[in-house]
Simulated assay, not measured.
Amino acid sequence: MSQTATLTRSPDWPLQVKSPGSHDWERSATRWLRDLLPARYGSYLTLTRHHALLARHVQLQLQHEMRAVRVALHTSRADLPMMGVAESVIENTIRMYAIELEQLGRLSRGVRLVSEALLVGTPAQRKR
């Protein structure tokens, strides 16, 4: 089985991205990656024209989002009562952060898979 077939069969492969080798698959990958970034990044042609840079930046962005959500999760019980937030809202907030961490982890794994697929056949990948 080829490496790209293995990548796309993973449960973490994003549904919005076509299978590598199919018509317009790189465009679907780039669109999906770009959509994971804040809108202001869409104007940076360096990111949108270079798959490796785009995927790297998305991975970094997701890592920072995960770090922020972890901090929010771990400080909720201490900080939110002092802000007058009701216990039931705090519990819902903690659940929300836990769900968000799971989603960000899944996105991060998807970005890694798409990035690997985009790099297959590039000079850097062939050197390995």
Rank of each mutant, 00 (worst) to 15 (best):
M1P: 13
S2C: 06
A5G: 04
T6H: 06
L7C: 05
P11Q: 06
P11A: 02
P14E: 06
S19A: 15
P20T: 00
P20A: 06
S22D: 12
S22E: 15
W25E: 02
E26G: 04
R27A: 15
R27T: 14
A29G: 02
R31K: 15
W32K: 01
D35F: 03
L36V: 03
L36E: 11
P38G: 09
A39C: 01
R40E: 14
Y41Q: 04
Y41L: 09
Y44C: 06
Y44T: 02
T46R: 07
T46C: 06
R49V: 02
H50M: 01
H50W: 05
H50K: 08
H51S: 14
A52Q: 12
L53V: 00
L53D: 08
A55D: 02
V58W: 04
V58A: 03
L60N: 10
L60A: 08
Q61T: 15
Q61H: 15
Q63S: 13
Q63K: 10
R67K: 13
R67M: 09
R70Y: 05
R70K: 13
S76T: 13
A78W: 05
A78K: 13
D79S: 10
L80H: 08
M83W: 06
M83F: 05
M83I: 00
M83S: 12
E87Y: 03
S88H: 14
S88F: 09
Y97M: 09
E100T: 15
E100A: 10
E100D: 09
L101Q: 08
E102Y: 01
E102W: 00
Q103E: 15
L104Y: 04
G105E: 13
R106A: 14
S108W: 11
R112G: 07
L113N: 07
S115P: 05
L119A: 15
L119I: 03
